[in-house]
Amino acid sequence: MTAAVRTRRFLRGPGVLAGGTVLVLLFLLAFVGPHVCGWTYSEIDYTALRSGPSAEHWWGTNRIGQDVFAQTARGLQKSLVIGLLVAFFATGVAALVGACAGYFGGWADRILMFLVDLLLVFPAFLIIAIVSPRLKSGGWLAFVGLLAVFGWMITARVVRSMTLSLKEREFVRAAVYMGVGPFRVIWRHVLPNIASFLIIDATIAVGGAVMSETALSYFGFGVQPPDISLGTLIANNTAAALSYPWMFFFAAGLLVLFVLAVNLVGDGLRDALDPTARTKRAKRRKDHR
């Protein structure tokens, strides 16, 4: 299937246009919004405490007079950066570990899969909650590392299974017979043939990473003050959800929109890169009924 056909299939997917448009608008809000609103996320307006949306403060202010639009844009920016980095590193580690385990087999496979099983047994949320406060000196990058460490194991198992199948294919065997090194075979022949799965997985992993970051930050284990993220904004303003709804629902609404948009785009990528995906989902729905 050519790139043009895949692109057309992707753009024709239900919800892809809506999801892609929402993602573009959210990225513009996160990275352009802070430069156009006239307020910084830490700036305080002592004349407007808990004031509603107005021409001066587009989305109102919080309890100490900080602009909600500027704060939400900054929080969204931080959450998006964390989600993208976690998805990138986790998918990269999963691809490397899974491909090496499937290709080399033997003791390498046993050791790598033992590591995967060991990490799957650990309660990731609890460990991150315990370790994260002790890594404050590392800032939010240390938090990204923690999320990435516990976010690649399932993908690695799938990559291993796909590699076991690929290494028996003629083009891989031919490369081996020609004396091509194992890591070069993995890089040039194995990984390109599972790239579609990795792209889909990384896309959906961004939404999962943002949700994980939000949950951990909500309980105080993620992004630490004075920095902010969607999780810290939601946590700080939960009590005001009914009395001052603009302080809570803008951040919460953007989080929901982002996750829904990522899932729509992920479904579109799955249909474009895996022509059988839509048929499989329809069959599962039919069997479920």
Rank of each mutant, 00 (worst) to 15 (best):
M1W: 04
M1Y: 07
R6I: 08
T7D: 06
F10Q: 06
G19A: 09
T21L: 15
V22E: 00
L28K: 13
L28S: 13
V36K: 13
C37Q: 02
T40V: 00
Y46S: 06
L49V: 14
R50E: 11
W59V: 00
W59M: 10
G60H: 08
D67V: 14
V68Q: 13
F69K: 05
A70P: 15
Q71C: 00
Q71D: 00
Q71L: 04
R74F: 11
L76Y: 09
L80R: 01
V86Q: 01
V86S: 00
A87C: 01
F89T: 04
V93R: 07
A94V: 06
A95I: 12
L96S: 14
G98C: 02
A101Y: 08
A101I: 07
A101P: 07
G102F: 10
F104G: 02
G105M: 04
G105D: 05
G105H: 05
D109F: 02
R110N: 12
M113G: 06
L115F: 15
V116E: 02
V116P: 03
D117N: 08
L119M: 12
L119E: 11
L120Y: 04
V121W: 06
V121L: 09
V121K: 02
P123K: 05
L126S: 10
I127A: 10
L135E: 07
S137H: 13
W140Y: 02
L141D: 01
A142P: 10
F143P: 07
F143T: 08
A148W: 04
F150Q: 05
G151M: 09
I154M: 03
A156C: 06
R160M: 03
E168R: 02
R169C: 08
E170L: 00
E170Q: 01
V172H: 12
A175C: 15
V176H: 01
V180R: 11
V185P: 02
R188P: 00
R188V: 02
L191V: 15
L191H: 09
N193F: 08
N193A: 08
I194Y: 08
I204K: 03
A205K: 10
A205T: 11
V206I: 15
V206L: 15
G208D: 03
M211E: 12
F221G: 00
V223F: 05
V223Y: 04
V223G: 02
P225H: 03
I228A: 02
S229E: 01
S229M: 01
G231L: 07
A240K: 11
M247T: 14
A251T: 06
L255T: 11
F258W: 08
D267I: 01
A272P: 12
P275L: 12
K283W: 13
K286L: 15
H288A: 11
